[in-house]
Amino acid sequence: MKSVAIIPARYNSSRFPGKPLATIGGVSMVRRVYEIVSSVGLDFVAVATDDSRIYDHVKSWGGEVIMTSENCINGTERVAEAITHLSFDPEFVLNIQGDEPFIKPQQIMQVANALKDPGTGISTLKKKIENEEEFNNQNVVKVVTDTDDFALYFSRSPIPFIRDKSSSISSFHAFYKHLGVYGFKKNILMDIVRLPESILQKIENLEQLCWLENGYLIKVLETDFQSLAVDVPEDLAKAEKYLKN
């Protein structure tokens, strides 16, 4: 069973152009992610990009990189296209975001190992929300799961809703945020990228809602590790501080 990880890296981010090439501690973000992912012992790791600057940068330090189309509308499509360029047929495909420079090897393996279960075609991660600010932040995607840890819904809104206003999230233990690392069985990945945009996906701007609407199960595993995603230039200062600590 061959497992591969693809790191989609786009230069023209609306909120942070050139983000994959931004440096943290003197090392580019995309290289940090690549080296962490490469350390876990998967069969193949590559960056997938549509930009020659990122392509040349990865080549300059000996990394694997695949040039993909400019027409990919999201990272999942870019990962799926990259897979078609491989000379072998992987069974498991991981989509590791290039803006997660502090992702832990344990988290990557957690997502990969979940795919060994015949009943799991898509896997991802969740972490307990620790404060009200995170819970109410629309940029923090929340997730609720069933008793078998399959996703019921993802939302930018606070879910589940706290009806008792005298309570707070500290009164419960069932509030989670979604961490955007995915594992797919290859056949499932190639199926979901062909799906038309769904209503819920369009409303929340969350592609995983399209998968749920079309009946695909998403296994959501809990992690205790707190990572730090870099979304905007202002996050670089936080990342430098995180690295030093």
Rank of each mutant, 00 (worst) to 15 (best):
P196W: 06
Q208G: 04
R163P: 07
I188M: 03
P158Q: 06
K177L: 05
S155R: 14
I192W: 09
S168Y: 15
R156S: 09
L200Y: 15
E204Q: 07
Y153T: 13
F150M: 02
L152C: 08
Q208F: 01
S157E: 10
K186V: 04
K177E: 03
L152N: 10
G183A: 06
L195M: 01
F154I: 01
E197V: 08
Q201K: 10
L212P: 00
Y216H: 09
R163H: 15
F161M: 14
F184A: 05
L195F: 03
V193H: 00
K177N: 04
E207N: 11
V181H: 10
S167N: 14
G183D: 05
K185C: 04
Y182T: 07
H178E: 13
V181D: 12
E204W: 06
Y216G: 02
I169D: 04
S155L: 08
D164Q: 08
S166C: 03
V181I: 14
K186D: 06
I188G: 01
Q201M: 09
P196L: 08
Q208D: 09
K202V: 02
I203A: 13
W211E: 04
F175S: 07
F161V: 14
E197L: 09
E204C: 01
N214S: 01
M190C: 03
R156M: 05
F175Y: 14
P196V: 07
S157N: 14
I169H: 02
K186T: 04
N187E: 11
G215D: 03
S168G: 13
I203W: 11
F154T: 02
S198R: 01
I192Y: 11
Y182W: 04
N205H: 14
E213K: 07
F154D: 09
Q208V: 10
L217R: 15
M190A: 02
L212W: 03
N205M: 10
K202E: 05
R194H: 14
P160L: 07
H178A: 10
N187C: 11
P158K: 12
H178V: 07
I169K: 06
E197S: 14
V193P: 00
H178S: 11
L206R: 06
E207L: 10
I162Y: 07
P158A: 05
L212I: 01
K165Y: 14
F172G: 01
L217H: 13
L209Y: 02
F184G: 02
G215N: 06
R163K: 15
S155T: 07
R194W: 08
L217S: 15
G183V: 03
F175I: 05
I169G: 02
R194K: 15
H173F: 12
F184K: 05
F154G: 03
L200Q: 12
C210R: 14
G183L: 05
L206K: 06
H173R: 12
N187G: 13
G215P: 00
V181P: 07
E213V: 12
P158I: 09
H178N: 12
P196G: 05
Y153I: 11
V193Q: 00
S155Y: 05
E207W: 10
S157D: 07
E213M: 03
I199T: 12
F172V: 00
L152M: 08
R163L: 15
I169R: 06
R156E: 03
I188F: 07
